[in-house]
Design a protein around this nucleic acid. Structure first.
Lengths: 246, 246
DNA sequence: TGCGATTTGTACGTATGTATT
DNA sequence: CAATACATACGTACAAATCGC
């Protein structure tokens, strides 16, 4: 039973090979560290060329399922911590999908210069010109999220021309920097009285807080704190072995 | 400036090509929908073979940065919502990394049969034999997490032999099913009085709640609810264009 | 409707380089 | 140093999808 690798005849050859090797790994039959047949052995086993076998194995390696080293060969990888793919659909899409009416509201917009505190968290020089926008998202007229945006005008000078009274900073940014790098931290907090009022919640209600920082060409561009009522918002995610069986 | 694609001479050719095409996309110079030169054009531009160009482009397509279609060619993709890679390192690793002493404590362990309620959420037949474990993780003697595990004995019969008084169900499972598929939901809740007591918190403190379900060979295997003090735990994640510049 | 042209997808063969034991 | 096994790269061929005429 150690080498019952079989092709299923469905789809491209390199995918069949990938699935064949994948199956015993995700089923747990091949535990981490177990050696995987060499490319030459797989060539013989499946009657495929080395390039084809190589592509299948490289795909598994890219997905983190196996580790490849010269001379030693390929081995089943040990999952590193737990990487998970989370879908953080933006607020508007989330609300739309629930069939609720979406509305955006700008609460405040002001220019400022980076204080020492902000500069420290932001990794920018103190005194850098910033734009601060406080806004709210509504679902069927009820508050669904509160956002506090800081935009670095040195990185995004176009922002100073935008009033943000109709378009949310998040959307504005997504249109301008569709593939921006960002980093975020998810935590739970009790809503203070001011926040609770703005979110129409009982004071001390649990909220999901997401801090996010984004960069443009390596320069910090935005810093956002978003607050969601705990009962009304959740992140969903999935951990799945990449390229599993159908 | 529309075609200033240049190789940087560092690393394998296919990676250089990938980076060259990647750069204008993540900088925003090429917006979603913009056409990318065909493989033949890139061959001529870079003096590389089609296989090499193809590999670079296919890698970008796998990462979701571009979309490829026959005859129409390749185009810059529009980011789909916001997929983010979250690291959900397990509790023990998180505590260890902070330099705190980790301890595990089993609060209760009992067999049960799936009630209609559980069966519904679990997607299993009512009456299925289950194992329920309630446990706690401690950092330097202070509660750091509360977990409520439901294990489907039909999927994991070995679990009935394990007492879970020394080893946490999460670790036990990770050793057995390293690449299990799982799905989870992150939300914020106020700790009820019982939970607050077990976590040594003020009642109504905000907590991060993570519900997770895992499968073994397509059969629901475990269902876990974990509760973390809001102040002491956070998820961190990163959204980054796959295969960006160095 | 059909047909040719374009573009990507798959697969094979071959060669050489490189890290590691 | 030699052997192993993966990494890169080139060339070729044909298939499949799709657009425009």
């Amino acid at each position: 039973m150690s080498d019952s690798l079989v092709l299923d005849g469905r789809g491209p050859l390199h995918e069949q090979i990938r699935r064949a090797v994948c199956a015993p790994i995700i089923s747990g039959a091949w535990t981490p560290g177990r050696r995987i047949p060499s490319e030459h052995e797989l060539m013989a086993l499946f009657g495929a060329s080395r390039m084809t076998v190589n592509r299948a194995m490289r795909t598994l390696a890219d997905g983190g399922l196996i580790v490849r080293r010269r001379r030693t060969g390929s081995h089943v990888a040990a999952p590193s911590g737990e990487r998970a793919l989370v879908t953080m659909g933006d607020i508007r899409a989330t609300i739309d999908k629930r069939g609720q009416a979406y509305a955006y509201e700008c609460l405040a917009r002001r220019g400022a210069r980076a204080s020492d505190d902000i500069a420290g968290r932001f990794e920018i020089a103190a005194g850098t010109p910033l734009l601060n926008i406080s806004c709210r998202h509504l679902a069927d007229g009820r508050p669904a999220a509160l956002e506090d945006h800081w935009i670095n005008l040195a990185a995004l000078p176009e922002a100073s021309q935008e009033r943000f009274d109709k378009v949310a900073p998040g959307e504005w940014l997504a249109a301008r920097l569709p593939w921006a790098k960002s980093r975020y931290i998810v935590s739970a907090v009790n809503a203070g009285s001011a926040m609770a009022k703005l979110l129409d919640l009982e004071p001390e209600s649990a909220c999901l807080k997401i801090d996010r920082q984004s960069w443009r060409n390596g320069i910090p561009a935005t810093f956002v704190t978003a607050l969601y009522p705990g009962a009304g918002h959740a992140l969903t995610g999935e951990v799945a072995p990449p390229y599993s069986s159908p």
